[in-house]
């Protein structure tokens, strides 16, 4: 577990490692999670150390390395599990993807609370907002929590979130990143894989991202890079 911002901790674990985030709210003992991969134990251990219980789990998208252990957190903590409507089918194909990847893991989806673009959740004086950012998957979202931006696999601080899995649309991902470009100046980016970083540093230093955007000159022009 490592602290990546005030009241935000990151846990990276599992045989197929991805970042899970624990966000402590203003209410004592209360927290929410952003994404949970295949292995829940390190996240549960971190929650115990932080002495907080998650009432909500917000998934940035439906891939197994981001929703894999959602049922565990729903059953153990009663956490409500949120996913964008457009990623439900992706979530239901996870075991097929795991099978063809020759992995032994299988997941069991919990009942889901479906969200749309703009869905908001109030925690004390702060609000978390779902922002639809399709491209990596049809229902990929970025979550805005004040000046913290949880981007899942939409935006990495290093590299680009292309997987060639079903539902991926590189042109749409470019358009999505373009829509986020100006916003990045004022946020800390917490990706689904890799380290967190200030958005303006990502814009400046992520050469692979700039190259990806440059594949469509229109997008590049509009991003002012």
């Amino acid at each position: 577990m490592r602290q990546v911002a005030d009241n935000v901790w990151c846990v990276t674990a599992g045989g197929f490692p991805a970042n899970s985030y624990i966000c402590r709210t203003d209410v004592p003992g209360d927290a929410f999670l952003v994404d949970v991969g295949l292995d829940p134990e390190p996240i549960a251990a971190a929650l115990q150390i932080l002495n907080c219980r998650p009432a909500h789990l917000f998934c940035t998208h439906g891939h197994f390395d981001h929703i894999g252990s959602a049922r565990y957190f729903q059953e153990r903590y009663g956490a409500e599990v949120h996913l964008h409507t457009a990623d439900v089918k992706i979530a239901r194909t996870n075991n097929f993807i795991l099978m063809v990847m020759k992995r032994e893991d299988r997941i069991s989806l919990p009942p889901l609370s479906l969200v749309e673009d703009g869905a908001s959740f109030r925690f004390g004086d702060r609000t978390l907002i779902y922002r639809s950012t399709p491209g990596h998957t049809p229902g990929s979202c970025s979550l805005v929590w004040g000046d913290q931006l949880f981007t899942g696999d939409t935006l990495f601080t290093q590299g680009v979130g292309l997987s060639k899995l079903p539902g991926e649309n590189p042109a749409q991902l470019r358009s999505t990143i373009r829509s986020l470009w100006g916003f990045l100046d004022n946020v800390i980016v917490h990706p689904g894989h890799g380290p967190s970083a200030p958005g303006m540093i990502v814009k400046r230093d992520n050469a692979a991202l700039r190259a990806f955007l440059a594949e469509d000159a229109t997008v590049l022009d509009n991003c002012d890079v």
Binding site: R92, T93, N95, F96, I97, V100, K102, K164, L165, P166
Partner: peptide, 29 residues
């Protein structure tokens, strides 16, 4: 390879669904 298999199955799923006029899932549990 595995990604090609995924691509084929998703492609088949779409065409079979269209041919049958109802959703066909080849990737569920």
């Amino acid at each position: 390879d595995s990604l090609s298999l995924v691509s084929v199955i998703v492609d088949v799923e779409a065409e079979a669904s269209e041919a049958l006029g109802k959703p066909v899932s080849l990737t569920d549990d």
